[in-house]
């Protein structure tokens, strides 16, 4: 559906990615990592300085405006709605622009206004809506197109829990029906829960691209074991630990779960000392990303 080959633009440099049809790809990265630039490159809003881009088999810059209903896009700060219109009028206008048949519009409008619960304020003007209310209408506007490809830039900003739940549920349903989705966010936990693939971006580079499971098994095998000791600090020289921290009776061990199991460690410790408490911590996605950045930087430094 989307192919980028050695694409460079602004912070993005020598970027490769292929997004097959029917995937929901979550772009994760800190502010300024290049998420929005990527979405703009994919949609043809920006021309790459170098490299090759194909979106739905076409050059998106040259064939801008020919995608019609095939591509739906929402970028933060670039509204698809007009401030003076009411929610209903704004969506009706888009229905004219994208030539959506009347009956189809009514059907999707009913469904979307129901699910995003904006029926009660559909007669208010867009400019009078709160951020969250407005986002619901914005999302309904792109989803109404039923595009083959949906590009969303931080669509969860301002949405409350109900709104988020409705949004991710609809995305999931549409993906099952074959929609390809690229969505960026600051919130890695949310993304990892709902996207079929994760693309981790840092300073314009693709650090990782694949499923959450692979990310966990490949990079996040560093577990943390926290022990409260009742006795001397054990000698753990023989274990392949990443590092350990001792603080009074607390001992914190960092280890790679692929190399050594928790049982082995506990076995060795119990031979030498008494333990009051044991806690094993699996890192969350945010920690993992920080860790991954470190690993990649090490690799790069070693390369030099």
């Amino acid at each position: 559906m989307i192919t980028l080959e050695s694409v460079s633009k602004f912070i993005i440099s020598d970027f490769h990615i292929h997004i097959p049809q029917g995937e929901c790809v979550g772009l994760i990265g800190v502010s300024g990592a290049g998420k929005t630039t990527l979405l703009k490159l994919m949609s043809g809003l920006l021309a790459p300085k170098h490299g090759y881009i194909r979106t739905i088999g076409r050059n998106p810059v040259r064939e801008k405006g020919t995608y019609g209903r095939d591509m739906g896009i929402f970028l933060t700060g670039k509204s698809n709605l007009e401030n003076q219109d009411t929610a209903r009028e704004a969506l009706e206008m888009l229905c004219h622009v994208y030539r959506i048949p009347k009956e189809e519009f009514h059907r999707s409008y009913e469904a979307l206004s129901e699910r995003f619960a904006f029926r009660e304020y559909e007669e208010k003007r867009i400019k009078d809506l709160s951020l969250g209310q407005r986002m619901r209408v914005e999302l309904a506007a792109v989803l109404m197109l039923k595009p083959k490809l949906l590009l969303l830039d931080e669509p969860d900003i301002g949405l409350d829990e109900n709104g988020k739940a409705a949004f991710w549920k609809i995305l999931e349903e549409e993906r099952r029906k074959g929609m390809t989705i690229v969505v960026s966010s600051h919130n890695p936990v949310e993304i990892s829960r709902h996207c079929s693939r994760i693309a981790l971006i840092d300073e314009g580079k693709l650090l990782f691209y694949g499923t959450e499971k692979r990310l966990r098994s490949k990079y996040a095998s560093m577990d943390i074991m926290q022990l409260k000791l009742d006795g001397k600090i054990p000698d753990l020289e023989d274990l392949p630990l990443k590092k350990y921290e001792a603080e009074q009776d607390m001992l914190r061990l960092f280890y790679d779960a692929n190399l050594v199991s928790a049982a082995e460690i506990i076995g060795l410790i119990l031979k030498q000392t008494q333990v009051k408490e044991i806690q094993v911590i699996k890192p969350n996605l945010t920690d993992m990303i920080m860790q991954l950045k470190g690993v990649k930087e090490d690799e790069l430094n070693r390369g030099k």
Binding site: L45, Y67, G68, K78
Partner: peptide
Amino acid sequence: DGSIATELLRPM
């Protein structure tokens, strides 16, 4: 306001 960009993507 930047809406020119997305406006250009529309099929009109």
